[in-house]
């Protein structure tokens, strides 16, 4: 049986992880490789690395880091943040990333999804969508959630899949950081309408939130950052809980 995926997300800036990370046994908390390995050992099913460096020097640090990650990790990983072109994606995949995620660039230039899908296959193209409800309309935001667009979330997700995205990473900005649980309404709406793998993001605060999102929506993965980084939820305990709820998880 296909398992539900638990996916920690690491924010990277200038080659280091950001946000305070508090992991027992990790001396240098800013080292993305050490943290990634720790997550792999604990049973993370995939990892997402989100590059939030704002400057042009970004690529200078990102590509060697991706190579290092690929050398050390034996689980799949996605790299996102600031990807603009076919060349960017080609470089990241050649450095060893399994998938790339696109956000603002896909909104600004939807044909990019098609070009990438044709060049590299849809299985490695993840469409990341930041969604916020504005006057009852699920609205797509870009530029790290700073800029609203005209796009309705389901419409954009469907278009992205038609253009060749193989997977959605759907973040609810209304729920992100609240720790009150995933945005079940939004995730249910999108995952019922679209037959593609969807990763739920935003709002996870405890293990019950994960079992809820897997039982009440059709998402196939759930992503979180700080609750894993701060050790508020340990992945082995989370998986044990999910297994007790009869949710299929990979056991190691």
């Amino acid at each position: 049986m296909l398992k539900k995926r638990i996916i920690p997300c690491l924010d990277i800036k200038n080659g280091r992880t950001v946000k305070g990370i508090n992991f027992k046994g990790l001396r240098d908390a800013g080292d993305p490789i050490a943290l990634a390995q720790k997550y792999e050992e604990e049973g993370a099913d995939e990892l997402v690395f989100l590059d939030i460096s704002a400057t042009e020097e970004r690529r200078a640090t990102l590509l060697p880091l991706v190579q290092e990650i690929a050398h050390h990790l034996s689980i799949p990983f996605t790299v996102g943040g600031g990807i603009q072109s076919v060349r960017d994606v080609s470089n990241l995949l050649q450095a060893g990333a399994d998938k790339v995620s696109l956000n603002s660039a896909a909104v600004n230039n939807p044909k990019l999804i098609q070009e990438l899908s044709m060049a590299f296959g849809r299985q490695c193209i993840v469409l990341a969508i930041d969604s916020k409800e504005i006057f009852g309309k699920d609205t797509v935001f870009i530029h790290g959630g700073k800029k609203p667009t005209e796009l309705e979330t389901l419409d954009w997700a469907r278009r992205g899949i038609d253009l060749g995205a193989g997977e959605l990473l759907l973040t609810s900005m209304d729920f992100d950081g609240t720790k009150k649980g995933f945005d079940l309404r939004l995730l249910q709406k999108i995952s019922k309408a679209l037959p593609v793998p969807i990763i739920a993001s935003g709002g996870a605060g405890n293990t019950t939130h994960f079992s809820e999102v897997f039982t009440k929506t059709n998402v196939t993965g759930a992503l979180a950052a700080s609750i894993f980084h701060f050790g508020e939820i340990a992945i082995p305990a989370l998986k044990q809980e999910l297994q007790q709820q009869k949710i299929p998880v990979r056991w190691i």
Binding site: L2, K3, R5, Q123, P195, T220
Partner: peptide
Amino acid sequence: MIPHMGWNNCTELAGTLTKNIPETAD
């Protein structure tokens, strides 16, 4: 859902490759 993407286990294990691997492994 296509592609079949993610972790899945094998059953009816025989042969050399899966030696020492249990059916619960993904």
